[in-house]
């Protein structure tokens, strides 16, 4: 089946079987590397993507279901350079092995879009679906909170 959608701002057309999962289309056919397999059953969130702006799991999504929709991955968040949140991840040391990092960045961006000034509890609630085995999450919280307060600063200026 022919499926057409917008991936990170660019229109793509792929030919897929109906049983093909979005994670495999993205990784095997469209050069997306940030979307990761870790559990395959919707427990780890490492395959998170934004579809029409909403976070979902690409390992439980059929590629045919994104026909006509817009898919964003970590690679597509910024046209040039880094987003503020990506920068904050670097500054706060919010990753170690880096395997889960793109999923956290997507969820963090989503949160910051929904809530200007999230509380630490909001951050935990939004991020809880992505598992990280390295960092203990603390520096990830710091990176997200830091980005939000910065937004507030620029708003005041």
């Amino acid at each position: 089946m022919k499926v057409e959608f917008v991936l990170n701002g660019k229109k793509v057309v792929v030919d897929v079987e109906p049983n093909e999962l979005l994670i495999n289309t993205l990784r095997d056919k469209l050069g997306v590397k940030s979307v990761k397999y870790a559990c395959g059953i919707g427990e780890c969130g490492n395959c998170t993507v934004l579809i029409d702006g909403e976070p979902v799991l690409s390992c439980l999504t059929l590629t045919v279901d994104v026909n006509g929709r817009e898919v964003v991955t970590d690679e597509g968040l910024s046209r040039e350079g880094l987003t503020k949140l990506q920068k904050a991840f670097i500054e706060e040391g919010a990753f170690q092995c880096g395997y889960c990092t793109p999923a956290f960045i997507l969820m963090g961006e989503y949160l910051l879009r929904e809530k200007q000034n999230p509380s630490i509890e909001d951050v935990k609630e939004y991020l809880k679906g992505v598992l990280c085995r390295c960092t203990g999450y603390i520096n990830i919280f710091k990176a997200v909170l830091k980005t939000s307060s910065r937004r507030e600063d620029s708003g005041n200026a």
């Binding site: 919707g42 969130g45 976070p55 969820m107």
Partner: peptide, 9 residues
């Protein structure tokens, strides 16, 4: 119920 990504689906 589960978490954000799952609840969206």
């Amino acid at each position: 119920f589960a978490y954000w990504q799952i609840r969206n689906m």
